[in-house]
Write a protein that binds this DNA or RNA. Structure first.
Length: 333
DNA sequence: AAACTAGTCAACCGCTAGTCA
DNA sequence: GTGACTAGCGGTTGACTAGTT
């Protein structure tokens, strides 16, 4: 297939920095006619630019919802967390930072964060320490994660004990179960929804963890990582959707067809045992109204999963993933 | 003051994926 | 199924600025 030129090879198409007059023309046109139709926009708007250039100018600079100025510490934490999940998928990272563009984040990463991570001894690519290869001490993660493996990550005996007794420990049961839920519904709901289920963490969490904290990652495999929605969905809504009549219900406002291929993280430390800690008060109002305690709620969800046999999605492994927490700590140390 | 260097970031380029006829 | 078209993404470039010599 012959590659289509991105714009007409006509003389007179301007390149380089945009003038205020050009900006004004573009803003006026988009305000009147909306975004889209970039190929024909320049001519209609009276601009001697290629459509691609117009789209980029609008997306990276002229859009009214763009937040400009210094990145906050929280934003930098988010960038690092999201980079650990997505790698150099700047657009995916930008979806997690409202008002910031992929280009801006990419530039900030390359000019600030990357250097600072290196200076702090953290590999900006792997998010692991450059000084000592901690991966040697970590459990091996299967390349193709198709087996069930639960690993509690803390290096102290207490946490090891939790592994042994994880059936009795609500927090760890919750961890496993949430992974099942995530895997089960990963193809229907987007990452933000899953993060809401997980509640106390997620890629955007700004909570720093102590070294005794146990961090568990949920990996949801799917055909594509093209998450199309980042809309916020209250956890209670989702839970209601999931448990109504014990059947899966799929509301467009709650479930999206977007698939997920990201590691979802939450903190499961000593102060955070029990499923109740993953939910807020509003979530529990729903539970209290139905007189279902935590255990019953877990059973209900388990039963729901068991009953919903039509979908044979495999349960994916739970494995340790604490490096990107450490690199954030290192970064801000 | 001039030349040089390094840092920053807007804009560009090449490519891919999705859609439609 | 194929090709044209469009939108979007990630890597790179280069203009500009600030700091240093």
């Amino acid at each position: 297939m012959v590659r289509t030129p991105c714009c007409k090879a006509e003389l007179g198409l301007k390149k380089g920095a945009w003038t205020p007059e050009e900006d004004q023309k573009l803003v006026s046109y988009v305000n009147c006619h909306g975004e889209g139709g970039w190929r024909t926009l320049p001519e209609k708007a009276g601009l001697k630019r290629c459509g691609k250039s117009c789209r980029l100018r609008w997306a990276n600079y002229l859009r009214p919802d763009i937040k400009r100025g210094e990145f906050t510490e929280d934003e930098e934490r988010s960038i690092i967390s999201l980079h650990a999940l997505h790698g150099n998928k700047w657009a995916a990272i930008a979806r997690g930072l409202p008002g910031r563009t992929d280009n801006e984040i990419k530039n900030h990463w390359n000019t600030h964060i990357k250097k600072r991570l290196i200076k702090k001894g953290v590999d900006p690519v792997t998010h692991k320490s450059l000084i000592s290869d901690k991966s040697e001490n970590l459990p091996e993660i299967p390349e193709k994660q198709n087996v069930i493996q639960t690993i509690i990550t803390s290096d102290d005996d207490l946490d090891n004990e939790k592994v042994k007794n994880n059936n009795e420990k609500p927090g760890l049961s919750s961890a496993k179960f949430l992974n099942r839920v995530a895997n089960r519904f990963g193809k229907r709901i987007n990452q933000s929804v899953l993060s809401e289920i997980i509640g106390s963490g997620g890629p955007l969490t700004t909570t720093t963890t102590s070294h005794t904290a146990t961090t568990t990652s949920v990996t949801v495999n799917s055909e594509s990582d093209k998450s199309t929605s980042s809309s916020f969905t209250p956890t209670s809504d989702l839970l209601c959707q999931m448990t109504v009549n014990g059947n899966a219900t799929s509301s467009p406002s709650t479930f999206s067809e977007a698939s997920v291929n990201d590691s979802l993280m939450y903190c499961d430390n000593e102060d955070n045992l029990g499923f109740s800690n993953f939910l807020n008060d509003e979530d529990f109002m729903m539970l209290e109204e139905s007189s279902v305690d935590n255990t019953e709620f877990m059973k209900e969800l388990s039963r729901f999963l068991e009953e919903d046999v039509n979908d044979d999605v495999e349960v994916m492994p739970v494995y340790e993933h604490q490096d990107n927490i450490e690199d954030i700590d290192n970064y801000f140390a």
